[in-house]
Amino acid sequence: MTGYDEIAFDDRMATVEFRVGERAHIVVDSEVCRSCTTQACVTACPANLFAPTSDGGILFNYEQCFECGTCYQVCNGEGALSWSYPDGGQGVVFRHG
């Protein structure tokens, strides 16, 4: 093997600063997700914020979001996502980028 230890996902996310705002800037309508055939957001979101639930819906937490837009680009369900940027100064803060 290469001798490279792959980092755990939580540790990976812990390298990023988030100034979490009160308002959820992205809201997922799990009702729509239940009839979504791809659930593409689950694997595509680089922050891994979309968790499938046992009833076929989606559990979403906006707090560690990169504000990248991948989810709404790949979303398969009309009206499932309401997407906006966090309020000024809040959300992700890249220290290197």
């Binding site: 990248c68 680009q73 890249f94 220290r95």
Partner: peptide
């Protein structure tokens, strides 16, 4: 195998994503 020798032992400082 071509990249691993460059980054062996390195620590992740930041993970980022952008479109």
């Amino acid at each position: 195998p071509a990249i691993a020798p460059w980054v062996r032992g390195a620590e992740v400082k930041e993970y980022t994503a952008h479109l």
